[in-house]
Design a protein around this nucleic acid. Structure first.
Lengths: 87, 87
DNA sequence: TTGTGACTTACAGTCCGTT
DNA sequence: CAACGGACTGTAAGTCACA
């Protein structure tokens, strides 16, 4: 589990979903009440976004928060254990 | 969307899943490499946990990160819009 | 085994701007 | 419209002694 790649994966999800909504970073920021420069850096994987802001983003984009955490773990250095076991 | 309740909901999920694993907060902290007292405060909804730590918790508990974000929105003040639309 | 208050440090997050 | 920088404020991260 590589922290940097987690942030990049989150950012990629954020960007992909925002683009399907056909709204700008600025517009997303306005809806979510988050600064536009922060949206930009979050999408580029430069920010360790907190839970409240993850929820804000999800609500603004009208998706379940889990959509933003739907990572492609194959790209990570270590495969998280939940791929091997179920709860 | 009430921030305080989001944190409490996250903490409740964290605690519930940890208890199904039958491990102590201290043991979870050891696995996730997070301080025991931090686990305690996160479970009590006192921390706005960031993405990296959400992933650490999820990996340590061997669950998908989205399991920790599986909130009961009915209890919240405002129903997030993703209940009304799908992506 | 867990809860809690207090504390410092690091960085989350904002606001101004330029390219 | 987005990337990026600088300077700033607020708060999460991380730890401790003690209940």
């Amino acid at each position: 589990m590589d922290s940097e790649k987690v942030l990049e994966a989150f950012g990629a999800n954020l960007r992909r979903i925002r683009e399907t909504r056909k709204i700008s970073q600025e517009k997303l920021g306005e809806i979510a009440n988050i600064d536009r420069t922060y949206v930009s850096s979050a999408e580029r994987g430069k920010r360790n976004v907190s839970l409240i802001n993850i929820i804000k983003f999800a609500n603004a984009l009208e998706v379940n928060p889990s959509a933003l955490l739907d990572f492609q773990w194959e790209e990570m250095d270590e495969i998280p254990r939940y791929h091997k076991t179920k709860i």
